[in-house]
Design a protein around this nucleic acid. Structure first.
Length: 273
DNA sequence: CGGTGGACCTGCTGGC
DNA sequence: TGCCAGCAGGTCCACC
């Protein structure tokens, strides 16, 4: 489900609802997520007050004044939302965190590829999942020159490179396809064959697409909902993703779907060279 | 080493 | 109408 813009949308929605709240209790209904959920690990959050909500790549980090941070990943179908206590449960609600204002932070995840762990806050950056992440694409510190240098001698198709979170954080299938279309670059092009100007264009396109998607509240294709339970409307702005067989809005050629590294790639054979 | 393919799950859809 | 192969926004690991 969620890539950087969707996670950022959730973060912005949840942050004011959670910051300052005390955690009263944590209930685990289903332990079988990507890694088994340990109820006693989550229970350590009881009594802690939330000091803030951060995002790193597609992870959410809920910091508390107890020196503990809740690490949440939504996998493909995860949802994280605040609900009034006692509201009927949605299907696949696996974890409920009760807050001191009577509301509840709930985690639902149909396919159970999500993840919840409690880490010591001072060790978050040393966690292997977080420590291995590449730079944030919207961080101004990342430059096209750095991407050019990083890809010397490498032979990956550029689409797969964009989706490698150790190279750049937070880019998934939708935004990799959309950024490449905007930059007019063929997804099969090998990274070593992209010059400094190409990286300039691609990084610019990537940032535009991500920022516009955040503005639109993310992309809802199937089941993404924000913290308030609303859909995002960036799906209306997608130019290639999920548009196989339809005409390219820029050149009129028919959008194609191919498979790269086991994932569907959508692109326009007319204007992506 | 770098890169690909399969596994992990459930549910929906499109073609027959 | 009903069935089922194929596919889905992510990540990790085995294997070449």
């Amino acid at each position: 489900m969620p890539e950087l813009p969707e996670i950022e949308t959730i973060r912005r929605g949840l942050s004011p609802l959670l910051t300052g709240r005390r955690i009263e209790s944590v209930t685990v209904r289903e332990r079988r997520l990507r890694e088994p959920v340990a109820p006693r690990e989550l229970a350590r959050l009881r009594g802690a007050r939330v000091t803030g909500l951060r995002r790193r790549s597609k992870y959410l980090l809920l910091d508390t004044n107890a020196g503990l941070t809740l690490l949440v990943h939504l996998g493909m179908t995860g949802q994280l939302f605040v609900s009034d206590g006692g509201r009927p449960r949605r299907p696949h609600e696996h974890v409920v965190i009760r807050l001191d204002d009577g509301r509840e932070l709930r985690f639902a995840d149909t396919r159970r590829f999500g993840l919840l762990r409690v880490l010591r806050s001072d060790r978050v950056d040393r966690d292997p999942r977080i420590g291995a992440l590449g730079p944030e694409p919207l961080d101004g510190g990342l430059t096209a020159g750095a991407l050019f240098r990083l890809t010397r001698g490498r032979s990956k198709p550029v689409k797969n490179f964009l989706m490698d979170t150790r190279a750049i954080a937070g880019i998934g299938n939708i935004y990799a396809c959309e950024a490449l279309h905007r930059a007019r670059i063929n997804p099969r092009r090998r990274v070593r064959r992209i010059g400094p100007g190409g990286w300039e264009r691609l990084l610019g396109s990537l940032r535009e697409v991500l920022n516009e998607a955040i503005e639109a509240g993310g992309t809802t294709l199937r089941d993404f909902l924000n913290a308030e339970g609303d859909a995002g409307y960036f799906a209306l702005s997608l130019k290639v993703y999920d548009r196989e067989g339809k005409p390219c809005v820029r050149c009129g050629a028919v959008i194609r779907r191919i498979v790269q590294a086991g994932r569907g790639t959508f692109y326009c054979p007319g204007c992506q060279r």
